[in-house]
Design a protein around this nucleic acid. Structure first.
Length: 778
DNA sequence: AGCTGTGGCAGGGAGG
DNA sequence: CCTCCCTGCCAC
């Protein structure tokens, strides 16, 4: 009879289930194509919330699960007292070392991996079950507590309470300053004291801004140098560090992942980037900027320049302490605000709190599916090879400035389609996909309803965090279908969702047009249009949209999402809106992007604002002003800087260039000649030097040094050309003669240019799509 | 070590 | 000059 585990096979065989022993090396025996390999891996005890239901499923003496290509080794045990866990793990470890540990099966003929876990689970169940009587979950639906309990549970970890918060800050500028509760000590003493504080206060959660990349690795390094054991984990264990990658939208970030046994780490630097991956509003992800952005920076907050920290510590330590504590307070507010969704998700998903922000959305929902399959002891399919072939429908019908504007969109288009048309992956034999999707959707709607009726602002905030964490899950279902590594992927199902979406959008376009509206721009699930003249107010517009919605299939709801005075329609996915409140919002990378020089962004923003107001004179004056200021180098260098984020390290870049796989680029070359190191996800700021208006930018790029900007260094000829390139975006909004008048500098002319009669124009755009339709009509 | 999707635009470098 | 290809950024 075996005591535990093991499995394995195929060249990329993955570990499917592992139990973890305290300070114990676990032997993993794999047999691959007849050859046995033994690997020793050290595991630390990590605990996972919410797996009680899984444990509940292990009620037979012996069972076998068939898994494939999955890396779900996270399914584990739940205990409340550390001593119970230790006892359990010791017991397993004893069994292991007594030689009962390994069982392998040769799986070379199939791709499947088999797991046999019974006696271990038997033992763990006995311990775990008595501790968790109150969590008698039997159905997936009951994994979630009712909304009330769910929301009230809040942040239960002790470190959240004010009196238990440890404020620790440090600075790396000279490598020697430490501030701990405001007292000064030798570095070794400081480190030991830090370890003691953590041990004594025993926090569940440790938070920091960029704590993965800086604070923790740094403290570990200094401890090693000072001969201090950095035992800040439970059980006196030391943290473990390894390089890891995260991707937010198209950006990939490399960071040092740190695991502290028994504790959760929350890095607000990552949370801020995750927040921004959909909103794209932040200029930088630094603590100060982020705190200001979210409104967490207090008015009397202490600011100290990065380069002056050592000096301040020597001359005015109290000031530095104040500064450091302000840093910590801001971090805490950021975390309080941004980690709520992760916290709630940790109650739903089989991942722990610290893991949630580091996992992608597909992995999150897949874990729900797999959990249910394990519970039902049903086999799990393999990912299918292939590719999704279709996406959302996008089109633009009018270019120019028009108004008034109504924006209508379908609420949760893809989830609605999947529910309405019962679309689910073929591999999902148990129907978990539909069931989970429906359940989460209902839970979210209920939560939103409760939120609307809630008076207490704190409770309202919690409910909001909860519903948005559910939204994250719901919106991942469609993407998951087309995910190549998803074990329940189904490309034709994904195509069916998008194609149905396209059909519905076209139906809306046709309906709005035939009802007298003028459709300007559409994208995937929503459209901008000029309502028919008889829609004079918001009420009428709402009614009009409701009428369109009524013409759509049952289960698909169109609603009015926004009203605007005017719209500047440029290209697909690129437009600007003027709100009734006077606010201008610009969408699309072809118009404006954060990598663009600040002067360019300001120019385009103001220019668009003037065009939305049909202020031709203002537009002309603006252009003339920029020509003058750039020519005389009156704009500060900081505004001429481009900031790009990079996806490769310098080494990877150089070898790609050498292999002719990619071209040289300004950002990398600027960093290389300045001698700085880069890691994926870093942002590089540079400007163009010299006089040539059309330089090879990778040769003229210089890294921007914030502390000593060299004002006269920038290439004003180049930036004048850039200005004209930006102005070129507006070519289509005027007749050619008018455009020349508006975007020329008075200084070139004998007389001041007359802008009388210059008008903005709008025109119908004939896109490929509409051409096809025209041909069909003939 | 871990990774949701497609559609769309701009700009730069290289080569014809 | 033009075209191709790649990267980066963005909308949904």
């Amino acid at each position: 009879m075996t005591d535990a585990i093991i499995f394995g096979h195929s060249t990329d065989s993955k570990i499917v289930a592992v139990y973890q022993a305290s300070e114990t090396t676990v032997k993993i025996v794999r047999r691959i194509d007849g050859k046995t390999t033994t690997q020793e891996r050290k595991f630390y005890p990590f605990l996972f919330l919410k797996d009680a239901a899984l444990l509940k499923g292990f009620d037979k003496k012996f069972w076998e699960v068939k898994l494939a290509g999955s890396n779900y080794y996270q399914y584990l045990f739940i205990f409340r007292r550390w001593s119970d866990i230790r006892a359990a793990l010791r017991k397993i470890a004893d069994n292991l070392s007594a030689g009962h540990g390994d069982t392998t099966r040769d799986l070379s003929e199939t791709e499947e991996v088999y797991v046999r876990l019974d006696p271990v689970f038997q033992f763990l169940m006995q311990t775990g079950m008595t501790l968790f009587k109150e969590m008698e979950f039997t159905e997936l639906e009951r994994m979630q507590l009712d909304i009330e309990t769910f929301a009230r549970s809040g942040f239960s970890n002790a470190s959240r309470k004010e009196d238990r918060v440890i404020l620790i800050s440090l600075s790396d500028s000279s490598g020697w300053e430490y501030v701990i509760d405001g007292r000064e000590k030798s570095e070794a003493e400081m480190l030991s004291e830090l370890v003691n504080i953590i041990k004594e206060r025993d926090p569940d959660v440790i938070e920091g801004h960029n704590i993965y990349n800086f604070d923790l690795p740094y403290l570990m390094r200094r401890s090693e140098m000072n001969g201090v054991k950095f035992r800040i984990g439970r059980d006196d264990l030391e943290p473990r560090v390894f390089t890891s990658r995260l991707s937010y939208a198209e950006r990939e970030i490399e960071y040092s992942n740190v695991e502290i046994p028994g504790r959760q780490i929350i890095d607000t630097w990552l949370l801020v980037q995750s927040y921004d991956s959909t909103r794209r509003e932040l200029e930088s992800y630094g603590l100060k900027n982020a705190a200001k952005f979210f409104g967490f920076a207090s008015k009397d907050r202490t600011y100290i320049d990065g380069s002056k920290i050592s000096e301040t510590w020597l001359k005015n330590p109290d000031l530095l302490v104040k500064y450091a504590l302000d840093d910590v307070r801001e971090t805490r507010l950021l975390s309080e605000y941004l980690s709520q969704t992760s916290f709630y998700l940790s109650q739903v998903l089989p991942f722990n709190y610290g893991q949630i922000p580091r996992t992608g959305s597909a992995v999150k929902i897949e874990s729900l599916f797999v959990r249910e399959y394990l519970r039902k002891k049903h086999s799990i399919p393999r990912p299918r090879a292939g590719r999704q072939t279709s996406g959302g429908y996008t089109d633009v019908f009018v270019r120019g400035v028009v108004g008034p504007i109504v924006h209508a969109d379908v609420e949760s288009l893809y989830p609605s389609i999947m529910i309405t048309y019962k679309i689910s992956p073929e591999g999902d034999a148990l129907g978990v996909f539909q069931r989970t999707l429906k359940h989460l959707t209902k839970l979210r709607l209920d939560t939103k309803k409760q939120m609307r009726g809630e008076e207490d602002p704190a409770m309202k905030f919690k409910l909001d965090a909860m519903q948005s964490s559910l939204k994250i899950l719901i919106n991942s279902f469609y993407g998951y279908l087309g995910y190549s590594r998803g074990i329940f992927n189904d490309y034709s199902a994904a195509d069916m969702v998008t194609e149905t979406g396209q059909k519905i959008l076209r139906q809306m376009i046709a309906q709005i047009s035939s009802d007298g509206g003028r459709v300007l721009e559409v994208d995937t699930d929503g459209l901008y249009f000029v309502p028919p003249p008889e829609c004079a107010d918001e009420e009428a517009e709402n009614k009009f949209v409701a009428g369109i919605s009524h013409s759509l299939p049952q289960g698909i709801n169109l609603s009015l999402d926004g009203r605007f005075r005017r719209m500047l329609s440029y290209k697909k996915k690129n437009y600007a809106l003027l709100g009734y409140d006077g606010k201008v919002r610009i969408r699309g990378s072809a118009l404006i992007s954060r990598s663009m020089e600040k002067f360019g962004r300001e120019f385009i923003h103001t220019a668009i604002e003037y065009m939305l107001h049909e202020n031709v004179q203002g537009l002309h004056d603006l252009y003339v002003e920029y020509v003058r200021k750039i020519g005389r180098r009156e704009i500060p260098l900081a505004k001429m800087v481009r900031t790009e984020s990079i996806k490769e390290s310098i080494d990877e870049y150089l070898s790609s260039v050498r292999a002719n796989r990619r071209n040289r680029t300004a950002s990398f070359e600027a960093a290389i000649s300045a001698g700085i190191n880069l890691r994926p996800g870093d942002r590089v700021s540079y400007y163009i030097s010299g006089n040539d208006p059309t330089p090879r930018s990778f040769m003229s790029a210089r890294l921007f040094d914030e502390d000593s900007p060299n004002q006269l260094e920038y290439n004003s000829n180049y930036y004048l050309r850039k200005l004209n390139e930006y102005a070129q975006r507006f070519l289509e909004f005027f007749s050619p003669e008018d455009f020349r008048k508006v975007f020329s500098s008075d200084e070139d002319m004998l007389f001041k240019i007359s802008l009388d009669g210059v008008k903005m124009k709008s025109e119908d755009v004939s896109t490929a799509e509409s051409k096809i339709e025209e041909e069909e009509d003939e």
